[in-house]
Structures are given as structure tokens and as C-alpha cells.
């Protein structure tokens, strides 16, 4: 029991929570933006994988780290445009298009990686983002090492959550996005172009997802492994529901999931041998399902989610 408390009060745990949460925050915000406009984007898993690869590849070939992030974002935007073309312009099934993009993007990522990077025993590395030293705060006891030893993209992700909350609930643009996700016909009757809104939301949202993937290769780790996204995209889909489509809650949900994950890693090492470690691997997912079941039933789903919009049809 004492050991458990020790874990909870170790600065290392909390630092890990923030690190693990970052790609989830970015992915969840991206998915949330798509769904607020009425488009489910199951391409997220593949878009994150491709973002992780292309961002890393750019840096490996000499670009600086922020340029790597930007390249990842642009690749995500391109997949977002493809998803918009299929689901918004052609009105195809959003499930099928999204899953197709996931398969396509992850395979393409692996293919390009193999094509452009020589096969060696140990994956090549880059110099990743280094922890930012926040003057004054980083030196505080406990709080400093727990919360202020992160790399810059983590702080940016948190700020983005606040910004996204502002945009969605406080600006005319956010209202237009919400109206489009609820009733595109009503948006059109108010002079808003639902097709443009959906294209924009899916493109920007997909770009965010890709930066979430790039965080893995440019900050959390320093090399690319084709399977490294490991279902984080699917976790983001669940987190959007958990968050009831609110950016602030998305931030909390991502942190909560990251906490379970960081905690289980430490439990594994503490209780090694007594319980098979796979059980601990399962824990964050089981707890997320429980949390999802508890919160999501009262959620107000965007009414037009997954409904294609065609002009003149009601």
C-alpha cells in the first residue's frame, strides 16, 4: 500500500502522464472538430501513423523539428481533404472511407519508410524535442519535475485544447460548425455553406491528428516504428464520446487515460511475477470503457453526425 502511494507521489509518474497524454490530446481535438461538423473520421489511426512517419522523415533528412511537425500537419490535411472528398462531396459511407484511409495511410507510411530509409538492425534515430526549462517553475520542488519538464509540443497541445474550446463555444465560426454538425439544412438556410464548413473542419482536424502522431517520433521517442501508434487513434475516438464533444473534457479525458496508462506501467514493475503483465496492459482500456459507459449515456451527439448533406434534399 505504501508503495502505491509512493508511486502516486513520484514526480516521474506525473511527468509521464503529461507525455503520454499529448498525442491523445491532439488526436482527440482533431477528431472532435471533425465530428462537431458531422463527419466521423476513422482515418485517424492511419493519419497519426503517417504523421509520425513523415514528420520523422523530414527531420531525418535535415529539417528542423517544428518543420517536421508542419510537414506532418500538411500530410494530415491532405488525408483530410481526401476524406472530405469521399464523404462530403460524394456522400459515401463515413465508416468505409475512414477505415479505408486508415489502411491506406498506414500502409503508405510503412512503404515510404522502407523505400527511403535503409534497412538496418536498430532503427535510425533523430535528435528529438528536449524538455523545456520554464524559468522559475521548473525548479520548484515536486511540481517542477512533475509538470514543467515537458517538451514544447505538450504545452502547445494544452493551449490548443483551450483555444479549441474558445473557438467552438465563443466564436461565430464555432457556432457555424456546431450548426452544421446538428442540422446542415438549417445552416444553409442561414447562409452558411455546410460543404465548406465540413471540408474545413475535416482538413484542420486531420492535420491535428497527424501532429499527434508526429509527437511520438519527434518528442516521445526518436525513431519511427510502423506499429508505434498502437490504437491511440481508436482511443481518441472513444475519448471524443467520453468528452461529450467538448474540448475541455477531451483534455481531462486524455489526461485520465494517460494516468491509467502511466500507473499501470509502474504497477507492472512493482508486482512483477504475481500477476501476468498483460492484465496491467489491459487496465487503461477497461477503465476507459467503464468511464465511457458512465458518462456517455447522457451525451448529446451531434444530430447530423454521419449523415451526408446534399443540397435541395430534406
Amino acid at each position: 500500500m505504501m508503495d502505491l502511494l509512493d508511486v502516486l507521489f513520484s514526480a516521474g509518474l506525473w511527468a509521464a502522464v503529461l507525455r503520454i497524454a499529448t498525442p491523445l490530446i491532439l488526436g482527440t481535438l482533431g477528431e472532435l472538430l471533425c465530428e462537431r461538423a458531422g463527419i466521423l473520421n476513422l482515418g485517424i489511426e492511419g493519419i497519426m501513423t503517417f504523421g509520425a512517419m513523415i514528420g520523422w522523415l523530414a527531420v531525418y533528412n535535415g529539417a528542423d523539428l517544428w518543420t517536421g511537425m508542419l510537414v506532418a500537419a500538411l500530410s494530415g490535411a491532405a488525408f483530410g481533404l481526401l476524406h472530405s472528398l469521399l464523404t462530403v462531396s460524394f456522400g459515401l459511407s463515413q465508416h468505409v472511407s475512414g477505415l479505408g484511409i486508415t489502411l491506406f495511410a498506414s500502409s503508405l507510411a510503412y512503404y515510404l519508410f522502407r523505400l527511403l530509409v535503409p534497412v538496418v538492425g536498430i532503427p535510425p534515430k533523430i535528435l528529438s524535442f528536449q524538455p523545456l526549462n520554464v524559468p522559475g517553475l521548473s525548479d520548484l520542488p515536486f511540481i517542477g519535475p512533475a509538470l514543467f519538464t515537458q517538451t514544447a509540443p505538450t504545452y502547445v497541445a494544452m493551449l490548443l485544447a483551450v483555444l479549441m474550446g474558445w473557438v467552438i463555444f465563443r466564436t461565430p465560426l464555432g457556432l457555424a460548425i456546431r450548426m452544421t454538425g446538428e442540422t446542415p439544412h438549417a445552416a444553409e438556410a442561414q447562409g452558411i455553406n455546410p460543404t465548406a464548413v465540413r471540408y474545413g473542419a475535416v482538413t484542420v482536424g486531420s492535420a491535428l491528428m497527424a501532429t499527434g502522431g508526429a509527437f511520438l517520433t519527434l518528442s516521445a521517442f526518436d525513431s519511427f516504428i510502423p506499429t508505434m501508434v498502437q490504437g491511440r487513434g481508436w482511443i481518441c475516438i472513444a475519448l471524443v464520446v467520453f468528452a461529450t464533444w467538448r474540448p475541455g473534457r477531451a483534455l481531462i479525458g486524455a489526461l485520465l487515460f494517460a494516468f491509467f496508462d502511466a500507473f499501470q506501467i509502474r504497477l507492472q514493475t512493482m508486482l512483477t511475477g504475481a500477476i501476468p503483465y498483460q492484465l496491467f496492459l489491459m487496465m487503461p482500456y477497461v477503465l476507459s470503457i467503464a468511464a465511457l459507459a458512465a458518462t456517455a449515456r447522457r451525451a448529446r451527439v451531434p444530430q447530423a453526425l454521419m449523415q451526408p448533406y446534399r443540397r435541395g434534399e430534406r
Binding site: P172, L173, A176, R178, M179, E182, T183, A187, Q190, Q303
Partner: peptide, 20 residues
Amino acid sequence: SLAPNLTVLENVMTGTESLW
């Protein structure tokens, strides 16, 4: 042409201001 999950004011104001 109204969105049931939005408030009356939000429904009325949608699209009446510059989006930016």
C-alpha cells in the same frame, strides 16, 4: 430549419456575424 441541441439564441445568431 433549426438545430434542436442548440439554444434559441444560438439558432437565431448562426450565420449573422462574420465567421472570422
